[in-house]
């Protein structure tokens, strides 16, 4: 299965070849997973493989169906989604705020950037014990961890974008006597928006990654709880069902973010954000 590539939503906007040219070649990528699924199905029903460890696609589908029918899927999905949403909100908010301040005011940059860069060197999961000590094992520590994961790419992206704004464009604002506030709204914001969107998407990807870590650490509900539960009761179909759910939600939220910002990026000269890649 292509678990790993599915679990992490696309975080980088990679410019690819034009869509039409690869349309039929795109289908080539389906051959492998479809073959694998068929082999699994046949293998298990013929008794060559043990279904307890390698769930056949039909079993996974049945499990998913059951989860949705009983409403469990929505309860767990909502719990996870809520954590990601809050963590993303706080992390991205802090990243945008500090990234902008740090980029616009050299004094602030000298003050905070070295510390942030040093903290960035810490693998975020390493904070977990400390967060649990501080905030307990419930929601606060989870959301904090997710926020920390989201914060760094957003901070770096916004800082880089503000620093790389063309001085010539700022000068146009000066010629037309824009106030500081107007310069921010009419020049800084649109000029940094493409980088902001890219970094938000990267941050969202990390948010989904860290919610898994947070929920594996201990949770009574959430898709990550299903992962642990599946492992403890020895149901690989449940694990794969949860993995697929993560993939789906990660993909959907990323697509949503991209779609919501696309109208504001139509002016761009390249394919990276304007075209669905």
């Amino acid at each position: 299965m292509s678990d790993t590539t599915l679990v992490h939503p696309r975080t980088e906007a990679a410019p690819g070849p034009t869509r039409r040219a690869v349309a039929w070649k795109g289908w080539l990528g389906l051959i492998l997973p479809v073959m694998l699924a068929i082999l699994l199905e046949i293998g298990v029903s013929a008794g060559w493989l043990e279904g307890r460890f390698t769930p056949p696609p039909s079993k996974i589908a049945a499990t998913l169906h059951e989860l949705v029918e009983s409403g469990e899927w929505f309860r767990h999905g909502l719990a996870t989604g809520w954590r990601v949403a809050l963590g993303f909100l706080f992390g991205a908010g802090a990243g945008i705020l500090l990234g902008t301040l740090s980029g616009a005011l050299p004094l602030i940059r000298r003050l905070i950037d070295p510390t942030i860069q040093a903290l960035r060197a810490v693998p975020s999961i390493a904070w977990v014990p400390l967060f649990i000590l501080w905030f307990g094992i419930f929601e606060t520590s989870k959301i904090t961890l997710i926020a920390v994961g989201v914060f760094f790419p957003v901070y770096l992206g916004v800082l880089g974008a503000v620093l790389s704004i063309d001085r010539k464009v700022i000068e146009v604002g000066r010629v037309f006597r824009l106030s500081k506030l107007e310069t921010g709204r009419r020049i800084l914001l649109p000029a940094t928006l493409p980088a902001l969107v890219t970094s938000l998407r990267a941050g969202l990807g990390l948010g989904w990654m860290f919610v898994v870590a947070a929920e594996i650490m201990g949770a009574s509900e959430g898709l990550g709880f299903l992962l642990v539960d599946g492992q403890q009761v020895g149901r690989s179909d449940l694990i794969v069902a949860a993995i697929l759910s993560f993939a789906l939600l990660g993909f959907l939220t990323d697509a949503l973010l991209a779609a919501a910002t696309r109208p504001y990026l139509r002016w761009r000269d390249d394919l990276s954000t304007t075209e669905k890649n």
């Binding site: 010539k168 464009v169 000068e171 146009v172 000066r174 010629v175 037309f176 006597r177 009419r186 020049i187 649109p190 000029a191 928006l193 504001y264 002016w267 761009r268 000269d269």
Partner: peptide, 28 residues
């Protein structure tokens, strides 16, 4: 300081890439 009575045109057009032609002209 920059005055409404003085306009300047640089060597490069310096249009704002995120604004349409009409919005660029109406920028000031």
């Amino acid at each position: 300081e920059p005055s409404a009575d003085v306009g300047i045109i640089f060597q490069e057009p310096r249009l704002l890439p995120w604004l349409s032609v009409a919005d660029n002209i109406g920028f000031g």
